[in-house]
Design a protein around this nucleic acid. Structure first.
Length: 925
RNA sequence: GGGUGAAUAGCUCAGCUGGUAGAGCGUCGCCCUUACAAGGCGAAUGUCGGGGGUUCGAGCCCCUCUUCACCCA
C-alpha cells in the first residue's frame, strides 16, 4: 500500500471495475430489495442535494446487497419538460433564433441533440459519488417503453372519465407561455401598493355620506379594464342601499353592476371590491355565482389585448398599470396610494409574475385517486420517516384540487388526443388507433393536440414504469413495490403523493413501503445555497478540490444579477483563501451521513468534512500498520482462544457492540448514528487502544508463535470486519484496503461489495474482559493525566508505584503489566504495601487504588499541588451536591433503590478519594 | 391566519422510555514515541433561548413567551 492516502487514485479505478463486472445488478436469491432513484433532470448537473440524496440510497442499497438480498437500485433520468426546453430556447436565443421559427420537429431534434450532448454529465457525476446504480437498466422518462406507459395511463384515465378537458382559470406563465400547476407557482411576500380608485355611481345614486362615487382598493390596477362588477358584503349597512345600482367603469366607458357577495370582507380595504372574473381566482368564483361576463384583457404574453380601450392595447401589463394609474389621477379618480405588502405569485421556473388566465386545459379528477392514497398511509402500508411528514401529506391530500396536466410546450409527452373539425375529442395511442377505436371514417380530418403533459405526470409512474409496465414483467413482480423512497420534503406533493395515487390506481400496489424524507442541504451558516448568494458548493469540487481562482470564476460567471459578482467574489476569497482541498468521495459521503439526523435541514460544515477526510487517512494508516505486521507472516485463525491476549478478546467484544449499534441505527435510518458508531469504534477503540495494545505483544521477544499469530489474526480480522461494516458508507477506501486484507485471511472474492455484512456473534461478547480493559485504561489515563499536567516529556519513562488496591487490582496489575508499561511509558511498576513510606510523588486514584509517580527529578511540587487542588475542588462540589441529594428524605423514599444506591456509592467513593487526595496534599505541603 | 421544525461548548451537530451534559472542528499546553503531524498525549470550555409548572430529580414531560427557518391559505 502507498504510504499516503490518495483518494483520487483509487476511486475511479474501482468504480469502473465494479460497473464492468456487473456488480451493481441484483444477484442471488432471497427477499429482493429495491430503490428507485428520484430521476434527476437529464441535462442537469449534480448539486449538494443530489449528493446527499444519493449517498443515502447508496448506503441502503449496499447494506442490503451485503445482507445477501438481490438488490436493485434503478437508474434513470427525467426529461424535465420546462427546465430542459428553457435551456435549449436560451441557446437558440443566443444564436438569434427562436423555436417558432424552427418549427416543432426541428426544435425537438435540437432538444434531443442537447440531451445526447449533456445527458451524461449527471450520470457521470453520480458515478463519481460511488452510487451503485444498476446502469444496465437505466431508463429515461421519454424512452419508448416509458412513453408507452404514460400513454396507457392517460388513455385509461380518460376512458374512465378521470381525465377531462376544462375551460377555466389557470396559472399562466407569461414568459414561458404555458399553463402551470398550482404547485409550480410560488407566492412570495413583496412590497407593493394599494391603489384607491373612485368609481362614479350612475343614475344619481349616492353613498350614505352623499358622495357620488364609491371607492375600491386594488393591488393590480390594470385589471380594472376587465372589471364586470363591484361587490359589497350583503350585510354591510354602508352599501346595502347601493346593491343593484350601477357604477361607471372609469376609462372604459362601461357600466357595471354593484352586487352582493359574502366573499367580500367589510373590514378589509374600503368594503367595496372590484370583480375581474377573467383575471382573479376569487373573482372568477364570484363571477360564476352571479353569472357575470368574463372579459379577458390580456394576451398570452401578458400585454393588453383588443378587449381593452384602444389607448391601452398592446401595452405590457406593468406598463399599463403605470399608465392607468396616471390616467385615473388625471381624471381625478385616484384617491390615494398606500404601501402594501402582498403575496406575488411567480412561476417557479421563469420567475415572472403569473396571471390567472382563462384557457382550455387537461385536468385529472384527482379526488377519486386521492382517497385510496390517503388510506394507504393511514393504514400504515406506507410509512414516512420521520413520521410527522404524514400530516403534511394528509393535509394536502384531503384538500387536493384537480391537477392541470397540459403544458403549452413542445418537449415532453405529447397528449394522445385528436380533434376533428368540430372539436370533438378522440383519445388513443395514435391517430390510427383513434380511428378504429372511435370508428371514424378515413376521410375525417384529425389533428393532434399540440400540448404535452406535465413532467410530473410521467414521474408519477416511475416505480412501475421503469420495471416494464404495462407489460407484466418478471422485474415488476420481483421488485415492486419498492422498499424505500428517499427524497426531499419539497417534492412530497409534486411527486411522492402523485406516485402513490397513480401506482395504486394502475398496479393495485403501493409504490414503496417507506418514504425517507430528508431536509435541504444548506451552507455552513444555514443559508440556502443559491447562485445569487454565491454560496453554492459543487460536490465534485469537494471531492477533487478546486483552486481559488477557478472557484471564484465558477461562482461569478453566468449570474442573473451580475452586480452581485463582486460581493460573491469577496466572500468566496474570504471563506476559501486557498481554494478547497481535495477530500475524496468517501469523506464527502461520510460528512453527509454524519449530518443526516432526521427532521431538520442540513447545514453543510466544511470543518466536519475535514474531520472525515482525516478519518479516511486514519483508516488508511491503521491498515498500513496492520499489514506491516501481518504481510510477511502466515496468519491463521487461532485454534485455541487461550492464545488471544486480553486486548484481542476486548477488541473483538467491542466490535460486537459497534455492529449492534450500526444495525440498530440503520434500521431507523439514523445514518448520523451509524457513522458515529463506526467512527468511534475504529478511531477511539481500534486505533487508539487496540493497535497500541497489540504492540507490546508483537514486540515481545518471549511471546509464543501462537500468541503472535492470535494477535496478528485479531488485527487483521477486526480490520477486515470493520471494512465490511463501513463499506456502505465509504465504498472506495474499504474496497482498496479489503482487497489487500482479505487474501491474508484466506477470503476469496474480487470485491468487498458482494461480501456478507458482518453478523452478530454472541460468543465474541465478553463482559469480563471489557471490564478489565476499562480498568486498565483508567490507570493509563490517570498516569497520562499526571504526565500531561506536570509536563513530563512523553519521551521520558517514569516509575509508577501502586498501593491500597484490592487483591484483584494487584493481580490485574501483574497480568497487564506489559500493556501498562508500553501505553503509559513506564520505567518500572512497583507495588507498595505501605504507601506512607513513599517519598514525594504525584498521585492519582483508580477506584481505591493509589497511583504514584515520584516527583524527584521530574517536576516541581507546585505544579502537582495545583493539579491536586483542582481535583479536590471538583470532588468537594460533587460531594456537596450528593450530600444534599441523599439528605433529602423524599429522594431516598421515592427514587428507585438502584438510583439511590448508585448515588450512595458515588458519595462514598468521592469521600474516600477526597481523604486520600487531601492527605497527599498535606504531605506535599 | 393555520401548521411544522429548530434554539445545547466559539462553529456544525448528537443526547434512546426524565437519574452525574457529549462528538467533530476550533482553542490552549507538551511531543516528529518506528501506522498516521490529515498524527499522539493532556487540558479548558456550557444557569441546555426566557419564565412558570409537574416530579425526590427536567436538556428531555406540561403551560407560556421570545427569536429563527420552512410549509399552507
Amino acid at each position: 500500500m502507498d504510504k499516503t492516502y490518495d483518494p483520487h487514485a483509487i476511486e475511479t479505478r474501482h468504480y469502473q471495475r465494479w460497473e464492468k463486472q456487473g456488480y451493481f445488478k441484483p444477484q442471488g436469491e432471497g427477499a429482493p430489495y429495491s430503490i428507485m432513484i428520484p430521476p434527476p433532470n437529464v441535462t442537469g448537473s449534480l448539486h449538494m442535494g443530489h449528493g446527499f440524496n444519493n449517498a443515502i440510497m447508496d448506503a441502503l442499497i449496499r447494506f442490503h446487497r451485503m445482507q445477501g438480498q438481490p438488490s436493485l437500485w434503478q437508474a434513470g433520468t427525467d426529461h424535465a419538460g420546462i427546465a430542459t426546453q428553457m435551456v435549449v430556447e436560451r441557446q437558440l436565443q443566443a444564436k438569434g433564433q427562436n423555436r417558432k421559427e424552427l418549427g416543432r420537429d426541428e426544435f425537438l431534434k435540437r432538444v434531443w441533440e442537447w440531451k445526447e450532448e449533456s445527458g451524461n454529465t449527471i450520470t457521470g457525476q453520480l458515478r463519481r459519488l460511488g452510487s451503485s446504480l444498476d446502469w444496465s437498466r437505466e431508463r429515461f422518462t421519454m424512452d419508448p417503453g416509458f412513453s408507452k406507459a404514460v400513454e396507457e395511463v392517460f388513455i385509461r384515465l380518460y376512458d374512465e372519465g378521470l381525465i377531462y378537458r376544462g375551460n377555466r382559470l389557470v396559472n399562466w406563465d407569461c414568459k414561458l407561455l404555458t399553463a402551470i400547476s398550482d404547485l409550480e407557482v410560488n407566492s412570495e411576500e413583496e412590497l407593493g401598493s394599494f391603489w384607491y380608485f373612485r368609481y362614479p355611481l350612475c343614475n344619481g345614486a349616492t353613498t350614505q355620506e352623499g358622495l357620488g362615487y364609491i371607492t375600491i382598493a386594488t393591488t393590480r390596477p390594470e385589471t380594472l379594464l376587465g372589471d364586470t362588477a363591484v361587490a359589497v358584503n350583503p350585510d354591510d349597512e354602508r352599501f346595502k342601499h347601493l346593491i343593484g345600482q350601477q357604477v361607471e367603469l372609469p376609462l372604459c366607458n362601461r357600466m357595471i353592476p354593484i352586487i352582493a357577495d359574502t366573499y367580500v370582507d367589510p373590514a378589509f380595504g374600503t368594503g367595496c371590491v372590484k370583480i375581474t372574473p377573467a383575471h382573479d381566482f376569487n373573482d372568477y368564483e364570484v363571477g360564476q355565482r352571479h353569472k357575470l361576463p368574463l372579459i379577458n384583457i390580456l394576451t398570452k404574453e401578458g400585454s393588453i389585448n383588443d378587449n381593452a380601450p384602444l389607448a391601452y392595447q398592446g401595452m405590457d401589463r406593468f406598463e399599463c398599470r403605470k399608465q392607468l394609474v396616471r390616467d385615473m389621477d388625471t381624471a381625478g379618480l385616484l384617491e390615494k396610494i398606500e404601501p402594501h405588502k402582498l403575496k406575488v405569485p411567480r412561476g417557479d421556473r421563469s420567475g415572472v409574475v403569473t396571471e390567472p388566465f382563462l384557457t382550455n386545459q387537461w385536468y385529472v379528477a384527482i379526488k377519486t385517486l386521492a382517497e385510496p392514497a390517503i388510506k394507504a398511509v393511514e393504514d400504515g402500508k406506507i410509512q414516512f420517516v420521520p413520521k410527522n411528514w404524514e400530516n403534511t401529506y394528509y393535509s394536502w391530500m384531503r384538500d387536493i384540487q384537480d391537477w392541470c396536466i397540459s403544458r403549452q410546450l413542445w418537449w415532453g409527452h405529447r397528449i394522445p388526443a385528436w380533434y376533428d373539425a368540430e372539436g370533438k375529442i378522440y383519445v388513443a395511442a395514435s391517430e390510427a388507433e383513434a380511428r378504429s377505436k372511435y370508428k371514424l371514417s378515413a376521410d375525417l380530418q384529425l389533428t393532434q393536440d399540440e400540448d404535452v403533459l406535465d413532467t410530473w405526470f410521467s414521474s408519477a409512474l416511475w416505480t412501475f414504469g421503469t420495471l416494464g409496465w404495462p407489460e407484466q414483467t418478471q422485474e415488476l413482480k420481483r421488485f415492486h413495490p419498492t422498499d424505500v423512497l428517499v427524497t426531499g420534503f419539497d417534492i412530497i406533493f409534486f411527486w411522492v403523493a402523485r406516485m402513490i395515487m397513480m401506482t395504486l390506481k394502475f398496479t393495485g400496489e403501493i409504490p414503496f413501503k417507506t418514504v425517507y424524507i430528508h431536509g435541504l442541504i444548506r451552507d455552513g451558516e444555514g443559508q440556502k445555497m443559491s447562485k445569487s448568494k454565491g454560496n453554492v458548493l459543487d460536490p465534485i469540487d469537494l471531492i477533487d478540490g478546486i483552486d481559488l481562482e477557478t472557484l471564484v470564476q465558477k461562482r461569478t460567471s453566468g449570474m442573473m444579477q451580475p452586480q452581485l459578482a463582486q460581493k460573491v467574489e469577496k466572500a468566496t476569497r474570504k471563506q476559501f483563501p486557498t481554494g478547497i482541498p481535495a477530500h475524496g468521495t468517501d469523506a464527502l459521503r461520510y460528512t453527509y451521513y454524519s449530518l443526516a439526523s432526521l427532521g431538520r435541514d442540513i447545514n453543510f460544515d466544511m470543518g466536519r468534512m475535514d474531520g472525515y477526510r482525516n478519518f479516511c487517512n486514519k483508516i488508511w494508516n491503521a491498515a498500513r500498520y496492520v499489514f506491516m505486521n501481518t504481510e510477511e507472516q502466515m496468519v491463521t485463525k487461532p485454534t485455541d482462544t487461550n492464545h488471544y491476549s486480553r486486548a484481542d478478546l476486548w477488541i473483538q467484544a467491542r466490535f460486537q457492540h459497534a455492529l449492534a449499534k450500526v444495525n440498530d441505527s440503520m434500521a431507523q435510518y439514523r445514518f448520523d448514528l451509524v457513522s458515529q458508531a463506526v467512527y468511534d469504534f475504529f478511531w477511539n477503540e481500534y486505533c487508539d487502544w487496540y493497535l497500541e495494545l497489540s504492540k507490546p505483544v508483537l514486540w515481545d521477544k518471549s511471546a509464543t508463535a501462537e500468541q503472535l499469530n492470535a494477535t496478528r489474526y485479531t488485527l487483521l480480522s477486526v480490520l477486515e470486519q470493520s471494512l465490511r461494516l463501513a463499506h456502505p458508507l465509504m465504498p472506495f477506501i474499504t474496497e482498496e484496503i479489503w482487497l489487500v486484507a482479505a487474501p491474508q485471511l484466506g477470503i476469496t472474492g474480487d470485491t468487498i461489495m458482494l461480501q456478507p455484512y458482518p453478523t452478530p456473534d454472541e460468543t465474541a461478547i465478553n463482559a469480563e474482559v471489557e471490564k478489565e480493559i476499562e480498568w486498565m485504561k483508567s490507570i493509563i489515563l490517570a498516569l497520562r493525566n499526571i504526565r500531561g499536567e506536570l509536563n513530563i516529556s512523553p519521551a521520558k519513562a517514569i516509575p509508577a508505584w501502586f498501593s491500597k488496591g484490592s487483591a484483584q487490582d494487584k493481580a490485574q496489575l501483574a497480568s497487564n503489566q506489559q500493556f501498562l508499561t508500553k501505553l503509559a511509558k513506564l520505567e518500572s511498576v512497583t507495588w507498595l504495601d505501605d504507601p506512607a513510606s513513599a517519598p514525594a510523588a504525584a498521585m492519582q486514584l483508580a477506584g481505591d487504588m493509589e497511583i504514584r509517580v515520584p516527583l524527584a527529578g521530574f517536576v516541581d511540587i507546585k505544579a502537582e499541588q495545583a493539579r491536586l487542588a483542582k481535583e479536590i475542588e471538583k470532588l468537594q462540589t460533587d460531594i456537596t451536591k450528593l450530600q444534599g441529594q441523599l439528605g433529602n428524605d423524599r429522594f431516598v423514599a421515592n427514587a428507585p433503590p438502584a438510583v439511590v444506591a448508585k448515588e450512595r456509592e458515588r458519595l462514598a467513593s468521592n469521600q474516600a478519594a477526597l481523604v486520600q487526595l487531601e492527605a497527599q496534599m498535606k504531605k506535599l505541603g
